[in-house]
């Protein structure tokens, strides 16, 4: 079902009627193999800052949240994540690229990725990032199996390598596939955090909240029993 939904979305949003690849290559959805914890999210945040943030914003997040939610130090955030464009510590994580310029260069402005994980799902983003292929017919030279005619070029090609439309390797990447997939999975982890920032807080306090509710329930049960014993005695 979800596959169908994604395909529908793509068709409608890209306004392309019928694509040949749909019938021939069914998209094989890949599940990112990562453990979703602070370490992977921080690694993903660093990778995102280095490779994605030039174009993409995650404007719902603020730099200070990376300290509050992920436990990074202020210095780490300032040195590794914040761009040297006068971004404020409490400010939103915004790409320095002006949106109108981006639209001019790339055809459409790069989307804000704040809620992308909840909208498309981790599987989609992961598979999408690993599904670029070389297509000289496209203005950017890139095409994508899961997002045909995508405006975004495969900026990760130097690390992940370049493949042709049939999956043949044209240039191998600087990283081994395993390392590269790990990096992409980290980015997916970061985007998951970005669209669900309360996750770590919820996991931290959830057990206590449930614990106290269970305690209340147990006490209420005994209180109820202490009253309803009246009726049980009568029936004997």
């Amino acid at each position: 079902m979800s596959t169908y939904r994604y395909l529908c979305f793509l068709l409608v949003s890209m306004l392309i009627p019928g694509i040949a690849w749909g019938a021939e290559n069914t998209v094989h959805w890949m599940t990112p193999h990562y453990t979703f914890n602070r370490t992977t999210v921080i690694a993903g945040a660093r990778y995102f800052a280095d490779h994605c943030m030039a174009c993409h914003s995650v404007s719902s997040l603020r730099y200070e949240y990376l300290r509050a939610d992920l436990g990074m130090t202020k210095k780490e955030v300032e040195e590794d994540i914040m761009l040297p464009n006068g971004a404020a510590w409490k400010g939103q994580i915004v790409s320095p690229m002006p949106p109108d310029m981006a639209a001019k260069w790339l055809g459409k402005p790069p989307p804000n990725l704040s809620h992308m994980d909840r909208y498309l799902g981790s599987k989609f983003i992961y598979t999408y990032l690993l599904s670029f292929y070389w297509d000289p017919a496209r203005p950017s030279g890139w095409n994508n199996y899961v997002f045909p005619m995508v405006a975004m070029p495969n900026i990760l090609a130097p690390w992940g390598g370049t493949v042709g439309p049939k999956g043949q390797v044209i240039f191998p990447g600087r990283l081994s596939p395993a390392e590269y997939h790990k990096n992409v999975a980290d980015v997916v982890a970061f985007l998951r955090y970005a669209s669900d920032p309360s996750y770590f807080t919820r996991m931290a306090i959830g057990p206590y909240v449930i614990g106290i509710m269970v305690l209340f329930t147990i006490l209420a049960y005994f209180l109820k029993a202490a009253y309803w014993i009246d009726l049980k005695k009568k029936r004997k």
Binding site: V209, I212, L215, F216, L219, A220, L223, A226, Y227
Partner: peptide, 18 residues
């Protein structure tokens, strides 16, 4: 009953505060 009522109310108050 009194003890349980008091204990339940106390935990209930904690929940309300929470």
């Amino acid at each position: 009953r009194r003890f349980l009522a008091a204990a339940t109310s106390a935990v209930g108050a904690v929940v309300a505060g929470m």
